[in-house]
Design a protein around this nucleic acid. Structure first.
Lengths: 207, 207
DNA sequence: GCAGTTCTGTACTGAGTTGTCAAGAAGGGT
DNA sequence: ACCCTTCTTGACAACTCAGTACAGAACTGC
């Protein structure tokens, strides 16, 4: 018995995320968000809680999208775990797209991990943002470590290697590729980096 | 025959860099720089050219410091190149300190590559910043590639490996460790990442 | 068709920002 | 000792921004 919302919440959050990605948090004004989303100030403060609220919700949505990738791509039987890790690496270095229907190429410059970018800019003074970014990191790291262990059980990775250390290293590479891709290097270079990283994974010694 | 400057230019730029690092570019006001450096507004606009000018000069100084590391640590004879690379990696993941006399531990959270941080925040709309960040990347990448080649000539790295690809991968790891270190991981973890990366370098096959 | 509730858009306020300007201070050369 | 040049300081005006408040619009349920 009341007027319904005239906008799609996710669509608004995607537009806000895109704006935050291109201009940074402090670089985007509420008017910018208003223009990017088509919403007036009143709606923004009513539905979310101003600029900071929009950021937190956008990051939460990003986290959900980010966490879905490892879950669907890395989980599975021990057999094929190494190849799943391979495919995931190849995709991860190109960033997390806004939505399945968005061509990833159009996001090239803005593909850097949204959470990492926000954490670098304002994480030092914003514990909530820092925590969300840490969650983004941890969820992927845990999934990668599990996949590494699966590959070890299947005899595809040196059983003496520490899976947690390997997962940290791979996550560091993914994060680094965000930065590298953000300023001036094309997708080919990122793919090459992912392939190099994969090729260096410690294989079991042939007896 | 005129009044000399009453401040040390490098000292001012270091203070400004520290401020930019902790608050980001758009997060620091001219008053913040003024308070951090002790200079009045007029002096800032006279000696540099306002906020943006301070940033560019601070980044140029950072570039000089950054480039000095690889030059002194990586250059040398083929013998020992691998160990030099090892030591450089261990140090690089902990960031570039403001000055030799500054304890690196105090900079922990703010140790992330200054150029990369600024490029991520405003590089998309600031070509000069983007170019400086690219220079920072390239100078280290070239030095690392050369050191890899030296190690290959000495028989410490698989001669079939592509030195440029390896250099890109190592740079990606260094950049990634900046991000990882920036939100919540201690120096021990960064050292561990550097050791893992070094351990995975492709050694020549024993005949 | 009416009432009530929620959404939407705009105008406003107070704080904070940037860049400039003019007056005063400080030192070197003669 | 004096002058001239440059530096320094503080204040100022124009502007932008975040957040609020209020009035109007839209929709549902009866």
């Amino acid at each position: 018995m009341a007027r319904p919302r005239s906008f799609d919440r996710d669509h608004v959050l995607h537009a806000a995320e895109r704006q935050f990605r291109t201009s940074g948090y402090n670089g985007t004004s509420v008017d910018d968000i208003s223009a990017a989303t088509g919403l007036g100030r009143g709606s923004l403060y009513g539905a979310f809680d101003g600029k900071h609220g929009v950021l937190l919700e956008a990051m939460a949505g990003y986290f959900a999208r980010l966490a879905q990738g490892p879950r669907t791509m890395l989980a599975g039987p021990d057999e094929g775990a190494l190849e799943r890790l391979h495919q995931y690496l190849l995709r991860a270095v190109h960033g997390v797209p806004l939505a399945a229907d968005v061509p990833p190429a159009s996001d090239r410059a803005g593909a850097a991990c949204f959470a990492a970018k926000m954490a670098l800019e304002i994480g030092a003074s914003d514990p909530e943002v820092k925590r969300l970014a840490n969650d983004c990191f941890s969820v992927v790291r845990a999934a990668v470590a599990e996949c590494v262990q699966a590959a070890q059980r299947n005899g595809d990775i040196d059983p003496d290697a520490n899976p947690d250390d390997l997962a940290y290293l791979l996550l560091t590479i993914i994060r680094g590729s965000d930065v590298v891709g953000a300023y001036g290097h094309g997708p080919d270079r990122l793919t090459s980096i992912a392939e190099s990283a994969f090729a260096l994974l410690p294989r079991p010694r042939h007896s």
